[in-house]
Nucleic acid binder design. Structure first.
Lengths: 256, 256
DNA sequence: GGGGGCTATG
DNA sequence: CATAGCCCCC
């Protein structure tokens, strides 16, 4: 089984990229974040013939998640079940008896903002979600844009960006707390490399060329799944150049 | 001498079309309307190597006119000289001793609006402009988007659109009053045909395919110029399909 | 329906 | 820098 994750930054602007990429890579599961479209406007017809089932939950302009699968998508749940009411940032479903938890973690805006506290709380709520819905010995994949670079290998210029909402002690502690519930980072399972990024800020000049990026997207696996994982890699898709996105695809392959 | 007119509906969006078209058709003069760009943002560099001189006057979002010529552009004047202050809708200049008056006549929005009265007044002011600046026995070409269909041959469905701002008695009277100062419609000099349109409303479904258009663009000539006119024709440029515009090119050829 | 412009967001 | 969404206009 091959699973993948991609922050689309508007799924309507990436229909071509996603369709081409699914046709080429043929992953079994694709988690999409930042669809930026309310459900009534989701491009259902565009994805009608691609050979994938899909579920989605979104709003106008911000957030929004989707899950594509070549196999039946079962027991779908949307969002966190704790207070306050969640934004459309999460889909939980089972594919071939593997739990897929696709999350778009809040970015946090700035360290002194309410949104940053919301981010830290969101990780806590997610931790409680895993505690109440799953056991670490089950087959669970937590995937998506987790909006944290966990160490200096995951950011371009660690010293200068230290303290920003996606690379600071509080965010690292918050995500680590969830990881410690029972996850392992599949990319790090196979590589100690730095510079393997999945996000490049549009506002950074020539960021892609200079590889001034961030590793913010993850495939996290419980022990049972980690044991089956054969590889996990970034696909810096060349077609992104046509209509460049700010994120790229991350994939992981598991034995059946 | 070949002259041409084209409502660009944003000259920045039609740079490719205009450059290609100039290179192919090689008119001596091209009048452009609806450039939709203020002078500081006019794409001067894009047109730098095309072999044409050009002058322009525009504003941010609406209106704007430009004049391209293979021969020197002399005695340039912008706009009407009567009150109230004119929008950037007109360039007068001489090319090879022929006066070229490039106008983008106000569309008029709706028959009950102030903009419609502004349109009717604009024709009156233009009439006075011709009276005070020229004599009907001079070589004058009044060209551009005149925003009036003068009879039933000039609109797709005359009975249903009668009464709209571009095809109603008041607009026809207003433009006729200017024509009667001393102009002749070069297209009608050579053809009684209907259905030879220069504009197709984007909002009309499959308007181009169904030829549900309007003839709103004209080359009007004084007697001295009319005597030299050999032909006047619409160029429904095939390349428009790439990034379709809502107007097309109208050309006229004159003996030297 | 397709231009531009403006604003907010990341 | 590149999204969305809203506005105005034709």
């Amino acid at each position: 089984m091959i699973v993948a994750t991609f922050n689309a930054n508007s799924i309507r602007s990436r229909i071509g990229i996603i369709l081409d990429w699914l046709a080429e890579q043929k992953p079994d599961v694709l988690c999409v974040q930042e669809t930026k479209v309310q459900d009534v406007d989701f491009p259902v017809e565009a994805f009608g013939d691609c050979g994938y089932e899909f579920v989605f939950r979104g709003q106008k302009k911000y957030n929004g998640v989707a899950l594509f699968s070549r196999y039946p998508i079962e027991d779908v749940e949307f969002g966190l079940d704790s207070e306050p009411a969640d934004e459309p940032r999460m889909i939980t479903a089972f594919v071939n008896d593997v739990a897929i938890v696709n999350t778009y973690v809040p970015q946090g805006t700035s360290p002194d903002s309410e949104r940053f506290q919301y981010k830290l709380d969101w990780f806590k709520r997610l931790h409680r979600y895993f505690e109440s819905h799953f056991s670490p010995d089950e087959a669970v994949l937590w995937m998506g844009d987790l909006n944290v670079a966990m160490d200096e290998r995951d950011v371009h210029n660690a010293k200068t960006v230290w303290g920003s909402v996606c690379y600071c002690q509080e965010s690292i502690d918050a995500i680590s707390d969830v990881v410690e519930w029972g996850f392992e980072d599949m990319f790090r399972k196979f590589s100690d490399e730095g510079g393997q990024y999945t996000f490049w800020d549009y506002r950074v000049r020539n960021g892609v060329e200079r590889n001034a990026g961030w590793r913010l997207d993850y495939v996290m696996a419980t022990a049972a799944m980690s044991a089956k994982c054969r590889r996990c890699w970034v696909d810096k898709e060349p077609r992104m150049k046509e209509r460049p996105s700010d994120h790229t695809f991350l994939l992981a392959e598991f034995d059946d």
